[in-house]
Every structure is written in structure tokens, then in C-alpha cells.
Simulated assay, not measured.
Amino acid sequence: MPAAVILYGPPAAGKDTITAALIAEDSSFTLFRRLKVGGGRTDTYRMATAEEVAELSRSGEILWQNSRYDATYVVDRPELRMLLNSNMIPVLHLGQAEAIDALRAAVPEVRWTVVELWCTRAVAEQRIRDRNTNDTTARLDAWDETLPLRPDQVDLRIDTTDSSPAESASRIRRALETSCRST
């Protein structure tokens, strides 16, 4: 059964940092670069047009879509399938609890390991300010709107103020290995 990791959490909880640590520890992990329509950061996304997203929607290839920061973000089946068929372990970044249920229902043949990342709002605010993205208020609003996961949605919880990126990556790898052995 193919495996994938979902890093769930509010802005600045450490999704990018922990993904980098996972990849540094094991090259079979790879960032799932969501499609993005809109401005802002581009380095961890595959940029798309509204027409391209509309075509994916018409063909039933969108697994999850949300809008935030004046942009649209898409988890698409073709990219996920390509990564899984390459024997990679995609790492998806999500901030909406309902996205987890949507992905599990849409792609039940994948063993999803869901990791809830968290840090205090004060730590998140400092991390956001350090990034200097000039959208601190919007990101803190998103932090406030990010709901905790239900117990049945999560495999591992990590407070990133208490766990280094390398330690978090090791814990995630162990959780993934454990879940794959039990499947």
C-alpha cells in the first residue's frame, strides 16, 4: 500500500521546516507541491491558471481545494498519483481539518499518516514576523481559524516549540513505519 504524510497545522507551525528535515533524513520523502492560483509566495507551489484548475475540476481530478490570502490552493490527483507511482512518499501541507477526511475518502488506497503540528500563537507570530512576508495579520487570522483535529483524524501530534525539526522528522518516520507495518 503506498504511503503519504499529511502535515496539518496553522501557519508557522513548522510544516516547511519539518518537510525539509524529513527529506534530509530520507530522500524517499518529497514535498507535494500544491497548485496555486494567485499571488504571494511561489517557491513551494506549482503555479497554475484559473482555467487549468477549472479543467481539473471538470475532469474530477481535484481532491481538495481552498482559498486563502487571495489565492486558490489545490491538491490534485494527477500529481499525487505521479509521486506515488514513483515510489515517493508525498508530504502534503494542510490547514483545514475537513481536507483530511476528503483526501482519505478520495484516495483510500493510500496509507495516510496524519501529523498535527502546533505551536503557541506567540511563537507563530514571531516566526511569521521573521519570515517578513508582510501579511502577519492574515496569517494570524488563519492561525486562529485552524481547528484542532479529532482523535480519529490524527496519528501523531507534535508541539514544534518543544521538538527540533530533526527530532520531529524522526518521530514522523517512526509513526509512518509503524502504520505501514500494521496495514
Results as ranks from 00 to 15, higher is better:
residue 167 E to K: 12
residue 167 E to W: 06
residue 88 M to F: 11
residue 4 A to W: 01
residue 39 G to D: 08
residue 31 L to E: 05
residue 160 T to E: 02
residue 114 V to N: 04
residue 38 G to Y: 04
residue 23 I to V: 15
residue 68 R to S: 12
residue 10 P to D: 06
residue 94 L to H: 03
residue 47 M to H: 10
residue 160 T to S: 01
residue 173 R to K: 14
residue 119 C to F: 01
residue 60 G to Q: 07
residue 18 I to M: 02
residue 70 D to V: 09
residue 180 C to S: 08
residue 78 P to T: 14
residue 107 V to W: 06
residue 108 P to F: 00
residue 141 D to T: 15
residue 67 S to H: 09
residue 161 T to S: 15
residue 13 A to R: 06
residue 57 S to Q: 11
residue 49 T to D: 10
residue 67 S to C: 04
residue 134 N to W: 03
residue 58 R to A: 15
residue 176 L to C: 07
residue 55 E to R: 14
residue 66 N to R: 13
residue 34 R to H: 08
residue 55 E to D: 13
residue 155 D to G: 02
residue 2 P to N: 12
residue 108 P to L: 05
residue 97 A to G: 05
residue 77 R to P: 00
residue 69 Y to Q: 12
residue 104 R to Y: 05
residue 93 H to W: 08
residue 79 E to T: 15
residue 74 V to Q: 04
residue 48 A to Q: 06
residue 11 P to L: 09
residue 6 I to R: 00
residue 167 E to Q: 15
residue 27 S to R: 14
residue 11 P to A: 11
residue 33 R to I: 12
residue 96 Q to Y: 12
residue 46 R to E: 12
residue 75 V to D: 05
residue 122 A to S: 13
residue 20 A to K: 13
residue 51 E to M: 10
residue 48 A to T: 13
residue 107 V to I: 14
residue 30 T to A: 14
residue 147 L to Q: 15
residue 170 S to R: 11
residue 4 A to D: 02
residue 68 R to Q: 13
residue 39 G to A: 09
residue 27 S to I: 11
residue 55 E to N: 11
residue 116 E to T: 01
residue 130 D to F: 00
residue 4 A to H: 01
residue 72 T to V: 14
residue 49 T to E: 10
residue 149 L to K: 04
